[in-house]
Design a protein around this nucleic acid. Structure first.
Lengths: 196, 196
DNA sequence: CCTACCGATCGGTAGG
DNA sequence: CCTACCGATCGGTAGG
């Protein structure tokens, strides 16, 4: 009875999604052709359409899956009974873990959302903007509580989110440093700075 | 004799380059068609080829112009007689100024280099990698001089470069804060951290 | 700088 | 899941 699988993670649709994410990273959404994707999956191009609706549907699935994971983690964090500094640290660590453990999908969501079709494009941007605004509120509350410096909270959120996004470039260096140390050093830098 | 112009900044080739950068941002290199570019310039598509060699040549010009500006600024900074902290601050401020003043071209160089053709792709990555390595050396020297914490220098460089790149997203907020203050807050955050 | 047009490739469908 | 194929669009050329 080898047919019973652990969840749906090995269905053809999931294989297509995984191969698509890798291909979108390598070539970009527009340059990645359905024929190339079919070859990676091991079928002819028209056969893909037995499992998916369209090329853009694949992109939508990836982008919103990731966006929803970040949003729901933020929901949980905001409801936790710790102060703004501890909440911010939790969020930073979550971003680092997402980058390290879901690299392909996070990368695609960060880089290829531009190619979403309406209304998905507007929905995605709306959701991302909402996420950023909630982080700004968190920073503001930390400033008011005298936990943080009197810095512009928009600039701080931009700086933090951008630095975290930069973990995309980490693959190259992976060998020289453990994920654990990477996380500690980055959290430390973003919160406490560079100077002794 | 109104034909004498200030430099070559208004030649048709420059107009094409500027419109192309804006179009590459909006649609991505692959999705931006030469027909759209022609329309933005105000000619028919085949006429573009009287001024440029190919679509990919436009991308090459943009990417290497920006890469060379960063590299030559780093050359100058390394030769200046100040310590590692002051050098790092100078570099950070230069990145911020480049993002604010040459937004379109920096954005294209950061996002669309993937579509460069060989050998340009390899050259570009080699140059960028060299730039990053020189920053790592600068960080290491600052750590040895006890100016900086004992943090992993690769992580610190990644964090700083990524945060600076994130100024791409700044356009939206521009109204609420001056460029001057943006620069001070970001320099402050990246060097001294967030905590009081 | 234009009109006319080329071969290549695209996402996707028909039909079995 | 395949073969056969569609209309649309691409970057670029010929020729004037």
């Amino acid at each position: 009875m080898g047919k019973i699988k652990t969840g749906k993670n090995n269905s053809k649709k999931d294989v297509i999604a995984r191969k698509a994410a890798a291909l979108f990273i390598k070539k970009g959404y527009t340059s990645a052709s359905m024929r190339e994707l079919a070859e990676a999956v091991g079928v002819e191009a028209p056969s893909l359409y037995n499992h998916i609706g369209s090329k853009s549907e694949i992109l939508q699935t990836i982008c919103f899956k990731i966006a929803n994971e970040f949003t729901s983690h933020l929901d949980n964090t905001e409801n936790s009974p710790v102060n703004a500094l501890a909440q911010l640290e939790t969020i930073i660590r979550f971003h680092i873990q997402m980058m390290l453990n879901n690299f392909d999908e996070v990368y695609v969501a960060n880089h290829e959302w531009k190619h979403l079709k309406e209304p998905f494009l507007s929905n995605f941007l709306f959701q991302r903007r909402g996420y950023e605004k909630r982080l700004v509120v968190l920073l503001e509350s930390g400033i008011k509580s005298d936990l943080f410096k009197k810095i512009n909270p928009y600039v701080a959120v931009l700086t933090i989110l951008s630095a975290l996004r930069g973990l995309e470039f980490w693959q190259q260096h992976k060998k020289n440093i453990s994920n654990q140390q990477l996380e500690e050093d980055m959290v430390n830098h973003l919160i406490k700075g560079l100077i002794k």
